[in-house]
Structure formats: C-alpha cells, structure tokens
Amino acid sequence: MMKSLTPALLICFAISACSETTQVSDDLEDSQTNIANPTGRTERLGSNPGERMVRIGEGGPRFDACQAVGRVTGLRGGQLDVRISPFDSAKQKDAIAEGQSVFICTRSHDQQWLGIVYDKADAANEEGGNEPSADCGVSSPVRSKRNYDGPCASGWVESTFVKLVAG
C-alpha cells in the first residue's frame, strides 16, 4: 500500500511546486515592469541604514529582558544625547535629562556605550526612586534575544553618564 501512495504524493508535490513557481514568476515579472521600483522591494518604515537596534533578553530566558537600571548623572546641566548606534558620529535621535531612570539592556563591545530603554514621559523621576515609572515591557523575561520594539523609546548613550542603581 505504501508503494502505491509514494508516486501519487510525488505528483501532488510536483503540481503544487509548479503552481507556486508560476505565482513567484508572475510577481517577479510584475515588479520588473514597474519602472519606479524595478526590484519590487519595499523600504521598512522608520528604518535608518546606520541604526543598530537595542537588543533585549541577552541574559537568557531566566532573567529580565533588561537586567539593570541606571540613572543619568554627571551632565552638569546639559542633556545626554541618545544615538541610533554606539558611536560618537552616529545620528542623534533624542536627548534625556539628568536624573532620568533608564533600563540598561546591552553594552557595546568596548563597554563605552549602553543600549538603553526609557520612557520619554518619565523625565527625571522626582521621587528619587531607583526604578523607572514605566515598565516598558523589559522587567520580565523574554524567550530569546531580540531587538527591542516598544512601547518605550530606545537607543545608545555613553556609559560614562549612567550610574548603575539596580541590577
């Protein structure tokens, strides 16, 4: 009985493969006739070619997604630039004030930059507590390492200006 089913299954797979190939071929043909977009590719919205996303879950599934909390300090009245990548020349995407609490999620290889997650509405937590007022979805474990995708803001800051307060 198994021998009689094998050829039938092979024929079914071959037919389905041909129909999928035709669909892919049609899509490719349509995209190649579009002069404005000959490759058929679409750009990710909000993406920047130089951006390095902040990664969460680096401690593994038994630890919080971001394992430490820090507070911005030592600015002498200014604001700390939040950049899209861990480099001095990277584009600035935001700035945060002294006293702002942040979740520390990752570090650059040279340890000079921290990948942080922070609540934009949590400007300088006035109670002086160690925890940011919003959870930002990083205070509990995640299954595996991944890029942080919200609901709070994220970026890279110089580690010199962030004091570890918990974690």
Results as ranks from 00 to 15, higher is better:
Met2Gly: 15
Lys3Val: 14
Leu9Cys: 01
Phe13Asn: 05
Ile15Trp: 04
Asp27His: 10
Ser31Met: 09
Ser31Val: 11
Ser31Leu: 04
Gln32Arg: 09
Asn34Trp: 02
Arg41Gln: 12
Arg41Trp: 04
Arg44Ala: 13
Pro49Gly: 07
Arg52Pro: 00
Val54Arg: 03
Glu58Cys: 12
Gly60Lys: 06
Gly60Leu: 07
Pro61Leu: 07
Phe63Tyr: 14
Cys66Pro: 15
Arg71Cys: 00
Arg71Pro: 04
Leu75Ser: 10
Leu75Lys: 06
Arg76Asp: 15
Leu80His: 09
Asp81Gly: 05
Ile84Arg: 06
Ser85Glu: 03
Asp88Ser: 14
Ser89Gln: 07
Ala90Trp: 04
Gln92Asn: 13
Lys93Pro: 03
Asp94Gln: 07
Asp94Cys: 06
Gly99Trp: 02
Ser101Ala: 12
Ser101Lys: 09
Phe103Ile: 06
Ile104Ser: 04
Ile104Gly: 03
Thr106Val: 13
Thr106Cys: 13
Ser108Leu: 10
Gly115Met: 12
Asp119Ile: 04
Asn125Met: 03
Asn125Ser: 10
Glu126Ala: 12
Asn130His: 04
Ser133Val: 11
Asp135Arg: 11
Cys136Pro: 01
Val138Asn: 08
Pro141Ser: 13
Arg143Gln: 12
Tyr148Asn: 01
Asp149Glu: 14
Asp149Trp: 01
Cys152Gly: 10
Cys152Thr: 08
Ala153Met: 11
Thr160Glu: 05
Leu164Tyr: 03
Val165Pro: 05
